[in-house]
Amino acid sequence: MIEVNIYNAAFLLFSMITLLSAIGVAVINSLMRSLFLLIISFIGVASLFVLLSADFIAIAQLLIYAGSISILLLFAVMLTPEVSINNQNSKYFLFAALTGILFTYIMFLFISIFDINQLTGLSLDKLNFSNTIDKIGTLLLGKYIIAFELASILLLFALIGAISIVRSNESDFNIVATKIKGKK
């Protein structure tokens, strides 16, 4: 059973903020309003990370999701002007709901393995775990170096894909190609 202490109360508050704004993202028709709620949901997730004493992960969540991915989504919405005003109901509602329920069930199965009272910042404080960023750095450049290098290749592919989307017409492409040939 969940103990009544200030950690669990804070966990309840932040998870409610996260979940309610996430539900709002799915329910609200205006795309911009749902994006705003999405940012609040990201911030809620960041505060949940803080409760787990994972301050570096929390800051990374805030920086990458609330600060950068949200901008990417905003610009993506600006590419579809009609949808942003009145987002129509999707015809795949049933499938989405089924997938959501299934995913929630699987998550519950995972969560029920752990003891929730162990998963707070208190348990890390007992281990004198004061600084997370050093340990992340040592692991990232030692044990998980392959993942670290693969991440850069993933990012490179994302950039090249975006360039090929933006390269608007073929003629423009040809001009540059002839220029490069001419130099050779």
Partner: peptide, 22 residues
């Protein structure tokens, strides 16, 4: 007095961008 001070300032100030957009 946090160990991620610089990143905290950088992350928090990056929240200005979506607010300006909205």
């Amino acid at each position: 007095d946090i160990n991620v001070g610089i990143l905290y300032v950088f992350a928090v100030s990056s929240l200005t961008v979506p607010i300006i957009f909205f």
